[in-house]
Amino acid sequence: MFTKREFLKASALAGAAGLILPRFALAAPVIDQIQLFVPAAPGGGWDQTARAMEQVLRSEGLIGGAQVTNVGGAGGTVGLPRFVSQYRANGSAMMVGGMVMVGAIVANKAAVKLDQTTPIARLTGEFLALVVPAQSPIKDAKDFVAALKADPAKVAVAGGSAGGSDHILLGMIAKASGVEPQKINYVPYAGGGQALAALLGNQVAGGISGYGEFAEQVRAGKLRMIGISADKRQPGIDVPTLKEQGVDVELFNWRGVFGPPGLSDADRKKQVDLVEKLVASKAWQDECVKRDWTSIPLTGDAYAAFVKEDTARIEAILKDLGLAS
């Protein structure tokens, strides 16, 4: 529904586009007002994604305006049911979510799942990094696996909350090296900062978190990065992947957007179109570089298939870790 002012604005734009400056027709907003729903508290990764999206979409003239709503809690499983029920078939509403939510839905046995939304696009991913304190005898991923095989209980690894992406990666490393995932000694911390402190204070043998979280400490020589969970070498990062070192593991903590259930084909196409224009823009690429996000766009049906596949993969590893039944 249009308010009078928006109507005037829209008609003025349409007039300008159609009559005076036809070559600016592309700059007309794809969707005039969007509502971005963030199932997390302000300040976190999903919130930053939404705010960066809003900023770029607006500056590129792809939207007229945006409203961001935060409903945080329990890895997104508090916000998800609210999004599904409140915005049904609303073509202007989009929710930011990602891998953490997939894990939380499984671990919390949530009734409302991601397959009740309309997957629109994957936007970014953060690969994880495995680090050890600078004075550790472990030099590379092979040493780490050898220590893990010798006695998993002796290799205490710090990271984020139990069942989160960091824990999942350690479980995958253990499984790929033939170590029982339930035997690993994972020490969960509430935030990346506290896990980092435990590493710097030499309290634990290793740590796992998003690459960006450790990058500065590695540069300063306080930590040693011994492997990253990306699929291939990353430009500007002089650290081999886990795969290269014989640990067949790949994990991206991805983030993407979802539309509400019951979206019409036209609305879905419009949202996909909007995101495709977003990720193609220079401004978005700049934001990604600035924030250490890897742009891994994937839209429409391919994304829907990816979400399904990733859900099955995460469910399996959480079962291996004894966190899901």
Binding site: Q48, R51, A52, G212, A215, E216, Q217, R219, K290, D292
Partner: peptide, 11 residues
């Protein structure tokens, strides 16, 4: 981070 400044020991 939204300024592209990486907080760390080198800040």
């Amino acid at each position: 981070q939204s300024y592209g400044i990486n907080p760390g020991p080198l800040l």
